[in-house]
Design a protein around this nucleic acid. Structure first.
Lengths: 189, 189, 189, 189
DNA sequence: AATGAATGAGGCTTCATTCAT
DNA sequence: GATGAATGAAGCCTCATTCAT
């Protein structure tokens, strides 16, 4: 339901172009931006967008999925590095995600409204997310850097909320850092 | 943009009905709900809606403004009560914001996308909010319940982010309470 | 489900214009003709068409309904006249209907394909149709002009088929008359 | 437009597969069914369909032509058999047309709307049809089973109209038979 | 002032047709 | 010759906004 048959090289290239364009366009103008604009940005015809993603909702879902996928990959990388300082690894990862996220957080919203739930029970990405994040969290808790009673179920909304707070601050970098720091203080051991 | 000429009694009544209906409809179906539905819910013709709020954006703004207005009133009440336990007063108030907030988030989103910033610099409501919140914060800090280095500039995004986190949790009340508690822990003295 | 609240005068006028235009356009270019063309022909905006008939299917259905309505009215008129020669009344009515129909018979087709069945069991128009046609048929049978074993259930498809035959002949009037006469011969007593 | 250059064996096979698939798909879902579905049903790429039939209209025409071709072959067979009972031969053949006709009607409709007239003057299939049918008719008239004044020019629309009537009856077999019988009565001597 | 019918730009989606592989 | 990805015109429908009643 996620990967079908191997696509021709050009088709895969176009699919990627569309996904990238969609991410940019929806981030900039909200998920209500017209599909046609995604097509223009991707440099393909609108028919191509719909060939790859048969509805706008499917496109939104794919964009969100791709974002989460990168998120999980990043988490996996950090996990693999097995940093000496587990607490630092944990907070550095969170921070990088939040920085990447600000200004781009409408996806959950749009999809929730549309009745889609990429993170719903049973979704593969959810399981991977929980696994990767779980390792980071566990290590950080074992090192004493993070409070022992924090669970993944709470961590995910905390991240989303913190990203939102950062986004709301806007361009004032120092203020944003302080705001994030305050919220992270709630996580410390 | 905030104070107008005195309306006829029936007109004022209609304006209120529309505002109330809009709040209900947009909360239930999102800000993308058709204006016509607001009119139906309010029991007036669509022309009347547009007479009072010349664009949909104006209507959205008015709804958000009304909500914030009530919120600030509430804050003022709390301030006036001069509660013995300043920390409790502070957190109770914050919690009430969070609780009635999920819907508000959608308005911020919609208006931000449209380029409107209701809480931006210079808005009267922002000033009032800052004033009331400032008093509550100051008292809570003086009582030692809240960290001394927290400023209003940080507090507002913190509240917004926490509200977002709560909204993301959805219907699981216990999980939501824990999530909010964690984030609030970052504020404590 | 057929008539709602009394429409404003201008609205009723527009509704009629649209219906008339739709009948003309669909007759000329088939039921696949774009709704926009109906709007242009009616001299209204496309929004007006959709205000009165919320889907294209509804428009098709309304056109068909209107046609059947006129058909039944006409039958009622003939019934009321109580012509001395019942056989002549019967065949004259059938002929006039067929002449009116040729070139315009795609409606049943289109609606059947679309899953609509205006003549399905329980439809009011069907009952009226059967009643009016039934009287004409009965009298013609009593007068001996029409075979006694003919039922309404057979008569309706016979009319439709005969209209189709007439339509297929095209512009050669004499040939059309002979063709219709031959088919009618099957009905005689 | 009827005879082409000799195709490679595999190409001819593909052409036949497409034609067969088209007949099945259009019969099942109407002539508006997407060409891509025909390709899928035929097990070929869509490019192949368009290589053999450069437009959808050409495909529709070919399908109808193939059907008529088989029909005429059948007529020729009946003619060759020189049946003892010429009347029975005539009506049996007509009935077989009616029975396999509901689908054909849709083709006529679609092509007529598009301005194509497969049975129009000058078409080879029309000439062959007239010839075969003419023999059957003549024999039936000579045997006294069919009225002497019936001409081919009238017979063809009569058949088409009767097929339409049968189609309109739908699935009630007994009613359909009675309806057809009534219309055929007009042809008898 | 209120009403609601009319408007039409704009969004999503389909599908016949073309063309690079 | 076959394939199927790409294309974009065109259709249906929605909805913010205007305006005659």
């Amino acid at each position: 339901m996620t990967e079908e048959k191997p696509l021709r090289a050009d088709a895969r290239r176009n699919r990627a172009k569309v996904l990238e364009a969609a991410e940019a366009v929806f981030a900039a103008k909200g998920t209500g931006a017209p599909t046609e604009e995604v097509a223009r940005e991707a440099g393909v015809g609108i028919g191509t967008v719909f060939r790859h993603f048969p509805t706008k909702e499917a496109l939104l879902e794919a964009v969100l999925y791709a974002r989460l996928d990168r998120f999980v990959d990043e988490a996996d990388t950090v996990v693999a590095q097995n940093a000496a300082d587990a607490g630092a690894a944990f907070f550095t990862f969170l921070t990088s995600w939040i920085e990447m996220s600000s200004a781009k957080n409408a996806y959950f919203e749009a999809l929730t409204t549309a009745g889609v739930n990429v993170l719903g029970p049973g979704s593969e990405i959810r399981d991977r997310l929980r696994a990767s994040l779980g390792v980071l969290l566990k290590r950080a808790q074992d090192s004493g850097a993070v409070r022992a009673d924090l669970t993944i179920a709470e961590l995910i909304p905390v991240i989303i909320g913190t990203a939102k707070a950062a986004e709301h601050v806007g361009s004032d970098g120092a203020l944003r850092d302080r705001t994030v720091a305050i919220l992270f203080d709630g996580l410390r051991g």
